[in-house]
Simulated assay, not measured.
Amino acid sequence: MSKNFSLPQWQLTKWLLDSGRPISPDIERDLVASLFGTLSIFIGGVTNTLLVALLITWHVQRQEFFVWLALEVLVCAARIGILISARRRARMARSTHTDLHVILSLVWAFSVGLGTYLSITSGDWLAAALACLSSAAMVGGICFRNFGAPRMTGVMILLALGPCCLGAMVAQEPLFLLTLIQLPVYVVSMTSASFRMNAMVVATMQSERDNAHRARHDSLTGLLNRATLLAEIEMAISRARSGTARPSLLYLDLDGFKRINDVYGHGCGDELLEQVAARMREAVPKECRISRIGGDEFVILMNDHDKDGAQALARRLLIEIAAPYLLANGEEVVIGVSIGIAQVPSTVQSADAALNIADRALYVAKASGKSRFHVAEII
């Protein structure tokens, strides 16, 4: 569901949610999704601020406090409504009103700070102490809950605690003037901690994605590896058994690659494999799955193409891969490719068995003179 939370659209909210470093789109969406999570902290914060506002208003009994209490109730109700709606809409892949959610978070922080200012300037030190403790307690929740947006966190802390300084100056109480020194340091340190937490979270997310990518992909070409291919074939076989599709496999083996390795070295051979992989990505339809299963052998899984489509792709690959390659050492080399094609029958027992059918077709293509394709005869 995290991928379905909407990215911000307004310039202000885009700036607030920008972590200040380049990140991938999927991590950006996960960070946005984190702003809608940790419901226990959200509920605790809302409950605390409403109770504090209610107690202070009941204690002081002034008009401005009733207005503040009404603002707290409206803002908290709106935030709860948006949060519930956003989580529901995310499940339906609809807009989650992220911009409004961010703005309401700032308004809530402003309301917390407003209550602190009113309490300090009221002259009632019981109310002032309760309001200051409440706003300070909210900072921890703000930092922890909004680690995905450190800029927004800093602004929220400033809105929640900044009025303490303003209230101290208006109240003209000497002891309260100490906040003019304490609070700026506190705001800076907590905001800095939010940026460090964000950096750690982003680094962890990126590391997890890198590890997942390495587990599924070939380290040299970036294509799918053998284990991932077999899993993909198993899913294709399941679809074939349900009658929704009959997948095709193209098993490719490069002709003349060993000579390139022997003459120019394995470094040039690796470079050539990377160039071959790049050409395959250009030639193969996006919905197909390309894998390198070892050495100079590649397999393409086509889920939604018939036999004619597989043969058309094979003809294109014969041409594309046979075009000359320019290596980094200045040498121009030419190789070919032999291809075995097999439509995977619904009766096949496993991915390995399906792969073996295409492998046997490849053997026939090799034995027939190479640089050609052969289609396995399967009923």
Results as ranks from 00 to 15, higher is better:
C288P: 00
K258F: 07
A245W: 01
R214E: 12
G295V: 11
E232M: 11
S189W: 05
G222P: 09
G295N: 07
E331K: 13
D296Q: 14
N198C: 15
Y325L: 03
Y264M: 09
N329T: 10
Y186H: 06
K286A: 13
G265C: 09
A322P: 00
L272P: 09
C268P: 00
A236G: 10
Y264R: 15
T221S: 12
R209V: 04
E320C: 10
A215C: 10
S207I: 01
A231V: 03
A312Y: 04
I260W: 05
R209K: 15
A193Q: 11
T228S: 14
I233Q: 04
I321F: 04
F195E: 09
S248K: 07
H213K: 14
M190T: 10
L326I: 01
S207W: 04
E274D: 03
D296T: 03
N211C: 05
R246E: 07
A283D: 00
R279F: 06
V299L: 06
L273I: 13
M190D: 03
Q206R: 14
D270S: 13
V187E: 08
A278G: 09
L252W: 06
C268D: 02
V284I: 09
A193L: 15
L318T: 01
N303K: 06
I319W: 01
R279Q: 05
G294C: 07
R216F: 02
A323T: 13
L223P: 05
A231C: 02
E208G: 04
L313V: 04
P324L: 01
E282H: 11
D270L: 11
Q275D: 08
V202F: 08
E232R: 13
L224V: 11
R259D: 09
R239Q: 11
Y325M: 02
R196F: 10
R239D: 08
M302A: 15
A245E: 12
Y264C: 04
R281N: 07
V188G: 02
S194V: 10
I319R: 11
A203S: 15
G295M: 09
I290K: 00
P324S: 01
M235F: 01
E297T: 12
L250K: 01
R241L: 01
H213A: 13
R241T: 02
T204V: 10
M205D: 07
